[in-house]
Protein backbone atom coordinates (compact mmCIF):
# COMPACT_ATOMS: atom_id res chain seq x y z
CA UNK A 1 0.00 0.00 0.00
CA UNK A 2 2.74 2.36 1.05
CA UNK A 3 4.82 1.39 -1.98
CA UNK A 4 1.80 1.91 -4.22
CA UNK A 5 1.29 5.38 -2.81
CA UNK A 6 4.94 6.25 -3.23
CA UNK A 7 4.93 4.97 -6.79
CA UNK A 8 1.84 6.99 -7.61
CA UNK A 9 3.32 10.12 -6.08
CA UNK A 10 6.48 9.54 -8.07
CA UNK A 11 4.57 9.33 -11.35
CA UNK A 12 2.57 12.45 -10.55
CA UNK A 13 5.72 14.34 -9.55
CA UNK A 14 7.35 13.44 -12.85
CA UNK A 15 4.28 14.63 -14.76
CA UNK A 16 4.35 17.90 -12.88
CA UNK A 17 8.06 18.44 -13.36
CA UNK A 18 8.59 17.35 -16.97
CA UNK A 19 7.58 20.69 -18.49
CA UNK A 20 9.98 22.47 -16.16
CA UNK A 21 12.75 20.04 -17.06
CA UNK A 22 12.11 20.67 -20.75
CA UNK A 23 12.14 24.42 -20.16
CA UNK A 24 15.46 24.28 -18.37
CA UNK A 25 17.39 21.93 -20.67
CA UNK A 26 16.07 23.40 -23.90
CA UNK A 27 17.07 26.90 -22.89
CA UNK A 28 20.60 25.69 -23.63
CA UNK A 29 20.03 24.12 -27.05
CA UNK A 30 19.82 25.10 -30.71
CA UNK A 31 16.45 24.98 -32.48
CA UNK A 32 17.17 21.74 -34.32
CA UNK A 33 18.37 20.02 -31.15
CA UNK A 34 15.34 21.20 -29.22
CA UNK A 35 13.08 19.61 -31.80
CA UNK A 36 14.94 16.38 -32.36
CA UNK A 37 16.35 15.78 -28.88
CA UNK A 38 14.14 17.64 -26.45
CA UNK A 39 14.87 15.35 -23.52
CA UNK A 40 18.58 14.97 -24.07
CA UNK A 41 21.03 16.31 -21.51
CA UNK A 42 24.06 15.49 -23.61
CA UNK A 43 26.77 18.08 -22.87
CA UNK A 44 27.77 18.57 -26.51
CA UNK A 45 24.28 19.87 -27.30
CA UNK A 46 24.31 22.43 -24.52
CA UNK A 47 25.39 26.03 -24.97
CA UNK A 48 24.78 29.23 -23.03
CA UNK A 49 24.76 31.21 -26.27
CA UNK A 50 20.98 31.63 -26.41
CA UNK A 51 20.64 32.47 -22.75
CA UNK A 52 23.21 35.22 -23.15
CA UNK A 53 21.32 36.47 -26.18
CA UNK A 54 18.08 36.55 -24.20
CA UNK A 55 19.81 38.40 -21.38
CA UNK A 56 21.08 41.06 -23.76
CA UNK A 57 17.85 41.49 -25.72
CA UNK A 58 17.69 45.26 -26.25
CA UNK A 59 13.89 45.26 -26.37
CA UNK A 60 13.37 43.39 -23.15
CA UNK A 61 15.74 44.30 -20.35
CA UNK A 62 14.89 41.53 -17.93
CA UNK A 63 16.51 43.30 -14.98
CA UNK A 64 14.39 46.37 -15.58
CA UNK A 65 11.33 44.14 -15.92
CA UNK A 66 12.10 42.67 -12.52
CA UNK A 67 12.74 46.03 -10.91
CA UNK A 68 9.44 47.41 -12.17
CA UNK A 69 7.48 44.31 -11.18
CA UNK A 70 9.01 44.21 -7.70
CA UNK A 71 8.28 47.91 -7.24
CA UNK A 72 4.64 47.25 -8.12
CA UNK A 73 4.42 44.29 -5.76
CA UNK A 74 5.82 46.32 -2.87
CA UNK A 75 3.69 49.40 -3.51
CA UNK A 76 0.46 47.48 -3.98
CA UNK A 77 1.03 45.38 -0.87
CA UNK A 78 1.91 48.35 1.29
CA UNK A 79 -0.97 50.46 0.07
CA UNK A 80 -3.38 47.56 0.32
CA UNK A 81 -2.45 46.97 3.96
CA UNK A 82 -2.66 50.66 4.79
CA UNK A 83 -6.12 50.96 3.29
CA UNK A 84 -7.79 47.60 3.82
CA UNK A 85 -6.82 46.91 7.43
CA UNK A 86 -8.34 50.01 9.07
CA UNK A 87 -11.58 49.79 7.13
CA UNK A 88 -11.92 46.11 8.00
CA UNK A 89 -11.39 46.97 11.63
CA UNK A 90 -14.17 49.52 11.61
CA UNK A 91 -16.48 47.17 9.73
CA UNK A 92 -15.97 44.27 12.10
CA UNK A 93 -16.31 46.41 15.24
CA UNK A 94 -19.50 48.24 14.28
CA UNK A 95 -22.70 46.30 14.11
CA UNK A 96 -24.66 49.15 12.57
CA UNK A 97 -26.34 48.71 9.23
CA UNK A 98 -24.19 51.14 7.16
CA UNK A 99 -21.12 49.11 8.05
CA UNK A 100 -22.79 45.83 7.17
CA UNK A 101 -23.69 47.36 3.82
CA UNK A 102 -20.12 48.56 3.42
CA UNK A 103 -18.88 45.00 3.89
CA UNK A 104 -21.42 43.79 1.36
CA UNK A 105 -20.24 46.41 -1.11
CA UNK A 106 -16.63 45.33 -0.80
CA UNK A 107 -17.47 41.65 -0.95
CA UNK A 108 -19.54 42.19 -4.08
CA UNK A 109 -16.30 43.43 -5.62
CA UNK A 110 -14.77 39.96 -5.40
CA UNK A 111 -17.21 38.74 -8.05
CA UNK A 112 -16.23 41.36 -10.62
CA UNK A 113 -13.78 39.95 -13.15
CA UNK A 114 -10.92 42.45 -13.46
CA UNK A 115 -11.05 42.40 -17.27
CA UNK A 116 -14.55 43.82 -17.04
CA UNK A 117 -13.17 46.83 -15.17
CA UNK A 118 -10.10 47.25 -17.30
CA UNK A 119 -11.71 49.06 -20.19
CA UNK A 120 -13.73 51.64 -18.22
CA UNK A 121 -10.77 52.14 -15.88
CA UNK A 122 -8.76 53.36 -18.86
CA UNK A 123 -11.16 56.29 -19.06
CA UNK A 124 -11.27 56.85 -15.31
CA UNK A 125 -7.48 57.01 -15.15
CA UNK A 126 -7.35 59.20 -18.23
CA UNK A 127 -9.79 61.60 -16.56
CA UNK A 128 -7.59 61.69 -13.46
CA UNK A 129 -4.48 62.21 -15.59
CA UNK A 130 -3.05 58.95 -14.26
CA UNK A 131 -3.11 56.82 -17.40
CA UNK A 132 0.30 55.33 -18.30
CA UNK A 133 1.70 56.23 -14.91
CA UNK A 134 2.93 54.25 -11.95
CA UNK A 135 0.45 55.78 -9.48
CA UNK A 136 -2.49 55.08 -11.77
CA UNK A 137 -1.52 51.47 -12.19
CA UNK A 138 -0.72 50.95 -8.52
CA UNK A 139 -3.98 52.54 -7.40
CA UNK A 140 -6.02 50.30 -9.69
CA UNK A 141 -4.16 47.16 -8.69
CA UNK A 142 -4.60 48.11 -5.04
CA UNK A 143 -8.31 48.65 -5.55
CA UNK A 144 -8.51 45.15 -7.01
CA UNK A 145 -7.02 43.72 -3.81
CA UNK A 146 -9.49 45.51 -1.53
CA UNK A 147 -12.57 43.29 -1.85
CA UNK A 148 -10.95 40.03 -0.84
CA UNK A 149 -8.68 41.72 1.73
CA UNK A 150 -11.58 43.40 3.49
CA UNK A 151 -13.55 40.16 3.43
CA UNK A 152 -10.70 38.19 4.95
CA UNK A 153 -9.51 40.86 7.41
CA UNK A 154 -12.90 41.74 8.81
CA UNK A 155 -13.70 38.07 9.37
CA UNK A 156 -10.40 37.66 11.15
CA UNK A 157 -10.69 40.76 13.30
CA UNK A 158 -14.10 39.69 14.54
CA UNK A 159 -12.36 36.73 16.20
CA UNK A 160 -10.10 39.07 18.18
CA UNK A 161 -11.68 39.78 21.57
CA UNK A 162 -13.11 43.26 21.93
CA UNK A 163 -11.80 43.49 25.45
CA UNK A 164 -8.41 44.32 23.93
CA UNK A 165 -9.76 47.44 22.22
CA UNK A 166 -11.60 48.46 25.34
CA UNK A 167 -8.49 48.15 27.45
CA UNK A 168 -6.60 50.30 25.01
CA UNK A 169 -9.37 52.90 24.88
CA UNK A 170 -9.50 53.13 28.66
CA UNK A 171 -5.78 53.71 28.54
CA UNK A 172 -6.54 56.75 26.39
CA UNK A 173 -5.49 55.40 23.00
CA UNK A 174 -7.39 56.76 19.99
CA UNK A 175 -8.93 54.48 17.38
CA UNK A 176 -5.89 54.68 15.14
CA UNK A 177 -3.47 53.86 17.90
CA UNK A 178 -5.68 51.09 19.24
CA UNK A 179 -5.84 49.54 15.83
CA UNK A 180 -2.25 49.86 14.66
CA UNK A 181 -0.58 49.03 17.96
CA UNK A 182 -2.98 46.46 19.45
CA UNK A 183 -5.06 44.82 16.75
CA UNK A 184 -2.86 45.01 13.68
CA UNK A 185 0.02 43.03 15.23
CA UNK A 186 -2.43 40.22 15.94
CA UNK A 187 -3.47 40.10 12.30
CA UNK A 188 -0.09 38.90 11.18
CA UNK A 189 -1.19 35.47 9.88
CA UNK A 190 -4.04 36.80 7.79
CA UNK A 191 -2.03 39.76 6.51
CA UNK A 192 0.70 37.33 5.51
CA UNK A 193 -1.83 35.28 3.57
CA UNK A 194 -3.12 38.34 1.79
CA UNK A 195 0.39 39.57 1.01
CA UNK A 196 1.21 36.22 -0.59
CA UNK A 197 -1.99 36.24 -2.61
CA UNK A 198 -1.53 39.85 -3.73
CA UNK A 199 2.09 39.25 -4.59
CA UNK A 200 1.07 36.39 -6.86
CA UNK A 201 -1.66 38.37 -8.52
CA UNK A 202 0.42 41.50 -9.14
CA UNK A 203 3.44 39.49 -10.21
CA UNK A 204 1.47 37.41 -12.68
CA UNK A 205 -0.85 40.10 -13.94
CA UNK A 206 -0.71 40.57 -17.66
CA UNK A 207 -3.83 42.26 -19.00
CA UNK A 208 -3.73 45.23 -16.63
CA UNK A 209 -0.13 46.36 -17.18
CA UNK A 210 -0.43 45.60 -20.89
CA UNK A 211 -3.26 48.07 -21.26
CA UNK A 212 -2.73 50.57 -18.43
CA UNK A 213 0.98 51.09 -19.05
CA UNK A 214 1.22 52.08 -22.70
CA UNK A 215 4.41 52.55 -24.69
CA UNK A 216 4.79 56.19 -23.66
CA UNK A 217 5.23 55.14 -20.03
CA UNK A 218 8.37 53.24 -21.05
CA UNK A 219 7.49 50.66 -18.39
CA UNK A 220 7.07 46.95 -18.71
CA UNK A 221 6.63 44.19 -16.20
CA UNK A 222 7.96 40.69 -16.53
CA UNK A 223 4.76 39.47 -18.15
CA UNK A 224 4.28 42.30 -20.64
CA UNK A 225 7.98 42.22 -21.46
CA UNK A 226 7.80 38.50 -22.16
CA UNK A 227 4.73 38.97 -24.27
CA UNK A 228 6.56 41.50 -26.42
CA UNK A 229 9.75 39.43 -26.56
CA UNK A 230 8.24 35.99 -27.08
CA UNK A 231 4.92 36.73 -28.78
CA UNK A 232 6.55 37.69 -32.05
CA UNK A 233 8.95 34.80 -32.11
CA UNK A 234 6.66 32.16 -30.70
CA UNK A 235 8.19 29.41 -32.82
CA UNK A 236 11.83 30.38 -32.52
CA UNK A 237 12.42 28.19 -29.51
CA UNK A 238 15.93 29.55 -29.03
CA UNK A 239 14.19 32.79 -28.06
CA UNK A 240 11.19 31.25 -26.31
CA UNK A 241 12.89 28.84 -23.90
CA UNK A 242 15.75 31.06 -22.64
CA UNK A 243 13.44 34.06 -22.19
CA UNK A 244 10.86 31.99 -20.34
CA UNK A 245 13.57 30.47 -18.19
CA UNK A 246 14.87 33.90 -17.23
CA UNK A 247 11.37 34.93 -16.29
CA UNK A 248 10.57 31.76 -14.40
CA UNK A 249 13.81 31.16 -12.53
CA UNK A 250 13.77 33.89 -9.87
CA UNK A 251 10.21 33.28 -8.63
CA UNK A 252 10.88 29.56 -8.69
CA UNK A 253 14.06 29.91 -6.67
CA UNK A 254 12.28 32.18 -4.24
CA UNK A 255 9.51 29.63 -3.98
CA UNK A 256 11.89 26.74 -3.31
CA UNK A 257 13.59 28.75 -0.56
CA UNK A 258 10.41 30.10 1.00
CA UNK A 259 8.02 27.29 0.19
CA UNK A 260 7.32 26.44 3.81
CA UNK A 261 6.30 30.01 4.55
CA UNK A 262 4.38 30.51 1.33
CA UNK A 263 2.32 27.34 1.55
CA UNK A 264 2.02 27.68 5.31
CA UNK A 265 1.08 31.34 5.08
CA UNK A 266 -1.52 30.65 2.44
CA UNK A 267 -3.23 28.01 4.55
CA UNK A 268 -3.26 29.84 7.87
CA UNK A 269 -5.26 32.84 6.87
CA UNK A 270 -7.22 31.20 4.13
CA UNK A 271 -9.20 28.74 6.20
CA UNK A 272 -10.88 31.65 7.88
CA UNK A 273 -14.14 31.39 5.91
Amino acid sequence: MKALKLGFMGVVAVLMLVPMYLLVVNAFKAQQDILTNPFSLSPDLLTTEYLVMALSNPDFDIVKGYAVTILFVVLVNALSILLACPVSYVISRRARRPYRLLLLLFVAGTFIPSQVLLIPVVYTLKFLGLMNSIPGFVLFETALTLPFSVFLYSGYISTIPRSLDEAATIDGAGVHRTFWSVIFPLMRPVVATMVILNTFSVWNDFANPQILLGPSSGLYTITTGIYAAVGQYSTDYTVVFPTLLLAAAPPLIAFVLLQRYIIGGLSTGAVKG
Binding site: L82, L83, A84, P86, V87, L102, L105, F106, G109, I112, L117, V121, T124, L128, L139, F140, T142, A143, L144, L146, P147, V150
Partner: peptide, 11 residues
Protein backbone atom coordinates in the same frame (compact mmCIF):
# COMPACT_ATOMS: atom_id res chain seq x y z
CA UNK B 1 -9.50 56.28 1.90
CA UNK B 2 -10.32 52.65 1.11
CA UNK B 3 -13.89 53.49 0.22
CA UNK B 4 -12.83 56.35 -2.02
CA UNK B 5 -10.36 54.17 -3.91
CA UNK B 6 -12.94 51.41 -4.23
CA UNK B 7 -15.54 53.81 -5.56
CA UNK B 8 -13.22 55.51 -8.03
CA UNK B 9 -11.56 52.37 -9.37
CA UNK B 10 -14.37 49.83 -9.14
CA UNK B 11 -17.82 51.30 -8.61
Amino acid sequence: PALALFVVMIV
